[in-house]
């Protein structure tokens, strides 16, 4: 806005308008989208990984079964922070190492030189010449992968439990009607499994929503980073000096997270009602009576 050209001369509402629309604040507003994008990207991938993990665990093919069991128990056992530090760095260095070997075959020296991890310039990911947004997007996708792997392991356990919870005699009945194992799984076990899985999955979703500040560990600037940066006291070296306002920025985050929780609750109530239709369960009866 034009009248924002001289911040020192501003007062009252104009000062606030200009202050809250600085490019730095716009980055803060954008970071809300980053967080939303992260959870809405991670959720479906988590579900897929979880489903794959659960099926692997139940597989009769032994190596696959072992893989499923190792994945679910190992990932769930490692502290999140360790995982979020390790996976993106290991993935990044792994990819760079492979590119280094392929793109620079003439360089035969070691990649680890003392403390340094050195690959040739063209093997860098992203390349040093790439604009900053490429670096940030790359970091964001490493974060998506790390989050998905962690939450996928938890989802696998939940889905495995839910598949087990479908009453066994129903599956037997299906087989007695001449259905193949695959048909029993698709027609009876899978549709009923969701009702059992939903409470566990909704827990996972809420934990995912709250875990997004861990993004900053992965150098993705999330809402908490910007709230702290913008709220910290600003001397006259800045255009809009102010004392420590972190409490107000964090209050805004509180509102954001509460709203997110509220919408999630609504959505999950809907899902629950949907999956309970026709079920001989408490919710199923309520849905039935409500017509």
């Amino acid at each position: 806005m034009e009248f924002c050209a001289e911040p020192a001369a501003l007062e009252g509402a104009k000062w606030w308008l200009c202050y809250l629309s600085t490019p730095k604040h716009q980055e803060f507003y954008f970071s809300f989208l980053t967080v939303l994008a992260l959870i809405f990207l991670v959720a479906p991938i988590t579900l897929l990984l979880g489903f794959g993990g659960a099926l692997a665990r139940r597989s009769s093919f032994l190596p696959l079964k072992w893989f499923g069991q190792i994945y679910t128990s190992m990932v769930r056992g490692v502290p999140d922070i360790v995982f979020f530090m390790f996976v993106p760095i290991a993935m990044d260095q792994g990819l760079e190492y492979v590119r280094h070997r392929i793109l620079c075959p003439e360089m035969t020296g070691p990649v680890y030189q003392g403390n340094d991890f050195v690959v040739c310039t063209v093997a860098k990911l992203p390349l040093s010449i790439s604009p900053q947004w490429v670096h940030e997007t790359y970091g964001f996708f490493l974060a998506v992968i790390a989050f998905s792997i962690v939450f996928g392991a938890f989802a696998a356990n939940t889905l495995d439990g839910a598949l087990n919870a479908v009453p066994h005699n129903q599956l037997e009945t299906g087989r007695a009607y001449g259905m193949t194992n695959r048909q029993v799984f698709r027609r009876i076990q899978l549709p009923q499994m969701w009702g059992y899985a939903l409470p566990g999955l909704s827990n996972l979703w809420m934990i995912l929503v709250k875990a997004t500040p861990l993004l900053f560990l992965l150098s993705v600037e999330d809402v908490v980073y910007w709230a702290r940066e913008l709220g910290s006291s600003k001397s006259s070296i800045f255009d809009y000096p102010h004392p420590d306002w972190r409490i107000w920025y964090f209050a805004a985050l509180l509102v954001f997270y509460l709203l997110l929780t509220w919408f999630s609750e609504k959505a999950f109530t809907r899902f629950r009602n949907w999956f309970s239709r026709g079920q001989n369960s408490h919710t199923g009866q309520i849905v039935l009576e409500a017509g």
């Binding site: 600085t22 730095k24 070296i237």
Partner: peptide, 18 residues
């Protein structure tokens, strides 16, 4: 690529233009 903290005025900081 020059790495900095961006939180230590007047050495380095993020100005209002981000």
């Amino acid at each position: 690529r020059m790495g900095t903290e961006g939180a230590y005025p007047p050495y380095n900081f993020i100005n209002d233009n981000g």
